[in-house]
Write a protein that binds this DNA or RNA. Sequence first.
DNA 1: AGTCATTGCACCATCGATTGTGCAAAAAAA
DNA 2: TTTTTTTGCACAATCGATGGTGCAATGACT
Lengths: 355, 355
Amino acid sequence: MTNGGRKKATIYDLSVLSGSSPSTVSAVLNGTWRKRRIRESTAELIRSLAETHQYTANRQARGLRSSRSGLVGLLLPVHDNRYFSSLAQTFEAHVRSKGQCPIVVSASRDPEEERRTAETLISYSIDELFICGATDPDGVHEVCEAAGLKHINIDLPGTKVPSVISDNFEGGRILTEAIIRHFPADRPLAPEDLYLFGGRDDHATRERIRGFRAAKKELLGGDPDECVWPTGYAADNARKAFDAFYEQRGKLPRGFFVNSSINLEGLLRFMAEHPLENFKDLVVGCYDYDPFASFLPFPVIMIRQDVEGMIARAFEVIEGPRASVQIHLVKPRLVPPRTALTGPLDALIDSDMPR
Amino acid sequence: MTNGGRKKATIYDLSVLSGSSPSTVSAVLNGTWRKRRIRESTAELIRSLAETHQYTANRQARGLRSSRSGLVGLLLPVHDNRYFSSLAQTFEAHVRSKGQCPIVVSASRDPEEERRTAETLISYSIDELFICGATDPDGVHEVCEAAGLKHINIDLPGTKVPSVISDNFEGGRILTEAIIRHFPADRPLAPEDLYLFGGRDDHATRERIRGFRAAKKELLGGDPDECVWPTGYAADNARKAFDAFYEQRGKLPRGFFVNSSINLEGLLRFMAEHPLENFKDLVVGCYDYDPFASFLPFPVIMIRQDVEGMIARAFEVIEGPRASVQIHLVKPRLVPPRTALTGPLDALIDSDMPR
DNA sequence: AGTCATTGCACCATCGATTGTGCAAAAAAA
DNA sequence: TTTTTTTGCACAATCGATGGTGCAATGACT
């Protein structure tokens, strides 16, 4: 170890060692040295000193001076969910490929927490913020705007900056249609056999419900109002809804549309207390894809949102010039039961294994 | 908006507005003002100015001066997996409760990337680093050590600082035992019917394999060497292993132990191409818990690592004085088939729903 | 040899907050 | 009233990197 094991080397240390000024060292190490007409040999010397002393720039200092940090933030509702975690995974890869540092934080769908978290990130001078699934995107916008921070909405739209979201209407429609068509012609679904559980009063849920209703009306010719049960994005609330339904009718609906895999976990909690027989003749549609859920012991039709597409689009838009406040719809994909799709992890190689 | 909408207010702005010096403003706003004997009324004035001008401290500046940032890092192998995402979720809650800002980053199980990422985090002067599931914990240690950064290992142990990990031997043992016992006495498992797939050459896998062998030897009286197939932590490699096995024998083993839910996804990929009949008389054990996987159409016995316990323990240890280099084992829990456990998300309330 | 352009770098202010030190004014003690 | 103590704050250095500006030394050219 060239270093006693303690304090990090600074440009001042290298300046002394190399006999050059700090500004010269700085220029060499941040790449602007040609512009400053530093001699190649000087640069070489400094570079080698930096190498042997394991110099790395203090980014707080750099960020303070340049009011940029190299950090790009992703504000998430929660981590512990395959949809959001695959967003995080994909986001990281994109940010890394631009040579910046991703920083992913969750705010629990709490508008207050969202704003506070954005404030915090801003206080670290992050360069851009991707606001994903925020309960109050425009609230977060306010604080970004006040700080002059570039930002964009994902998953749930705001009205102040561009948004990249799933085509939830279309997704809801095709999912509903797929549920309906999954029943055999000789035992077709009645309008009152098909329910929607989950979601809250947000743009995504509203659009999905619109798609749900449109498909029901078109294919089943009816759409009783009581067929929509919002439960919030919480597994246990969904479980309670299933319990209540079961309590009332002695069975579950033959088909239902579950809004988000978080709510589908509520179905698992229900299942745990009921014999598998109760789930014969059941078809579930879930808006969100989870590979394990796709193989449950009854047909589960899922919607996989195009995470890669959304992230890629969001980067295009945020990078692009003067983006107009517009909602960019990204088509989601219908996933038939028993389907194992690849995900962002498949792009990684296992450095421990041959090939 | 009191602010034109652009640059953030600084202590210098407030200093001018209040007629006090920047240092007074600073002291008032960071809480050290009593120590500096600032008059209550002065403090009050400054606080109200800060309020109306929406002052927030520039943490890069603060961090530069104090060489602390208020950031606490979690280095993860990947995001897109329920085990790691629940770790992230739990970690965030802990860090938040200490008034700091969590920053979660993944490094893809690549030793190079791990060190680079640690370097990057260090360059932002993070205050502590939790190194989770690192392929080369001691490598990361080196860079932390050189920067004088407090750190600790989770999930996979290193030899230079304390580690908090699952009791993988015991977990592997009880999981194996549960698989064996799940078969009825009249059609018991033979030693060559029970395989282990997945994992790589890391501490966790080795320990689990040790537990696997121990249980087999004890309960089945045998343990052929070819019953262990490491595949790395990649779904597709696991699928290939299943394919290969199936190719050779025309069936899957009656029972198997899958190391990590990532590899269990490989089983899904295999399943997608085979009729469900092939999975009769099959019992799977998986080291890791995923709620959906627990309800697959054949018995899946899972191990849930005690994420909350590990994180809590890790914070205790890292906060504690002069922790000795020691491995702290946290007992994991056996989860029978068809079990829906609650997770970190259940601690959140849905602000959009009543109650 | 004298003028001018180019090269190669040093100097210094700056980003925003923190903190040790110093000192005038007010209050208390003598 | 004078001396001492306390109060309340201002000053200035500092953290590490950046980038505008200035200037000596060298080379090119007449």
